[in-house]
Design a binder for these strands. Structure first.
Lengths: 138, 138
DNA sequence: TATCTGTTATATTATATATATAACAGATAT
DNA sequence: ATATCTGTTATATATATAATATAACAGATA
């Protein structure tokens, strides 16, 4: 049977099974990227854990782990039986805990970049390019 | 016996043994941060794998793994018997492979940040603050 | 000669990741 | 009502990764 959500999600996902990054993390990142790029809009539904797992060819529990993380962080809502829907992004997702984690990650990234010869202008330019790239879909 | 390198490195390191981030990665990141902040200058020596391991209270092989990574990436040089020294940072460390990895990491970071309400100005400001923070030591 | 260096090898333990089955309870469609 | 779908939970297993523990080697040094 034809499945709209599965078609949508297939366009967004590009998992690398050889990567050292766990599948459930890649899945999380790519769904978040889909939301950031408005390929996934508020109210839209995602395939069920079983359907998604079957589409991608991975285990149900791997998808379940991703959904659980996305739910905890406010990206999606899981209505029992109505399925999984994308939330409207909300400023309440901008917690101190998250900001602290972001800064920590940025510090590691920037320290290495600086050592290797990426200066603040290069770095800022690259960041802005990525912001533009994500916004293209709007 | 008093050990200068050990004193230095103790000032720089702050490992979290409860973290989900592997120790050898934390160690790598923090040494790179030390180099970026010029707390570790070109030509300076790092403690031997055994000394460092003993100082921190971890296994020799964990330190060895970190040193091997840092060596591969050009941050340090290992002279058999002369010890481990910090390299002068070099533009040859700015490889395409690294830039690709940096952009990938930034894209994930920025996608989530954008969803949570960090706009490009916030993000740029935070990045520049970190660049300034790292440069304080110069 | 004794001691330190990085390096390599092997083994063991603990944890994380992914999978496989199974079951439960609520909701929906036929 | 019965079958089917939902998220969720539980249990077990296989594999990979991370960290540790010992040991040994070869080169350099005191």
């Amino acid at each position: 049977m034809y499945n709209v959500e599965s078609e949508m999600i297939r366009m967004i996902l590009n998992l690398d099974f050889e990567s050292e990054i766990p599948i459930y993390q890649q899945l999380r990142s790519q769904i978040i990227e889909g939301i950031a790029m408005k390929k996934l809009k508020p109210g839209e539904t995602l395939p069920s854990v079983r359907q998604m797992a079957s589409d991608i060819g991975i285990n149900m529990h791997t998808v379940n782990k991703t959904y659980t993380l996305l739910k905890q962080d406010g990206f999606i809502t899981v209505h029992r039986q109505k399925g999984v829907t994308v939330n409207k992004m909300n400023k309440s997702m901008l917690t101190d805990e998250y900001l602290s984690r972001l800064k920590q990650n940025l510090r590691i990234l920037i320290a290495e970049a600086a050592c290797r010869g990426v200066n603040k202008d290069n770095f800022t330019e690259t960041s802005l390019e990525i912001f533009s790239y994500l916004k293209k879909g709007e």
